[in-house]
Design a protein around this nucleic acid. Sequence first.
DNA 1: GCCAACGTTGGC
DNA 2: GCCAACGTTGGC
Length: 155
Amino acid sequence: MAYWLMKSEPDVFGIDDLAKRPGKTTHWDGVRNFQARNFMRDGMRRGDLAFFYHSSCDEPGIAGIVKIVKEGYPDRTAFDKDDPHFDADSDPEKPRWYMVDVKLERKFRRTITLATLREHEQRALKGLALLKRGNRLSITPVGAAHWKFILDLAE
DNA sequence: GCCAACGTTGGC
DNA sequence: GCCAACGTTGGC
């Protein structure tokens, strides 16, 4: 089983929005980056766990954990002219963009802030993709050791 | 609002 | 294939 980190802007869709969804489940749509797409389409497997990261907000950080409950399948918002993520180059016969379904597994009592994560970036969290300089990828892998360490921070 | 860093596009 | 221009991300 693999571990991941998925970013979302809480102003658009935060962990509390996910909690309100039927079955606490949603489609992770709108990803328009090839590397992130590949992670969803080729890397993520049913049962994998991912940190739910809040970005572009007052308190950036990890808010909880989601589980991958459906593996990569075409992101239909790319075919919808009225959708902000519409992409004319994505052919329904040969979809360019993919999404997965995630289910809320756990919300942390408090967010593990980016500032807290940074305190450990030289040691325990060395190499964590999220902390790499200039990182903008909305989906990144998390190593098992890093995962465990961050989980401990949540206790 | 600013700006650094990055991915993508398109001219050549 | 190179690279400048552009748009976007995301922390501060």
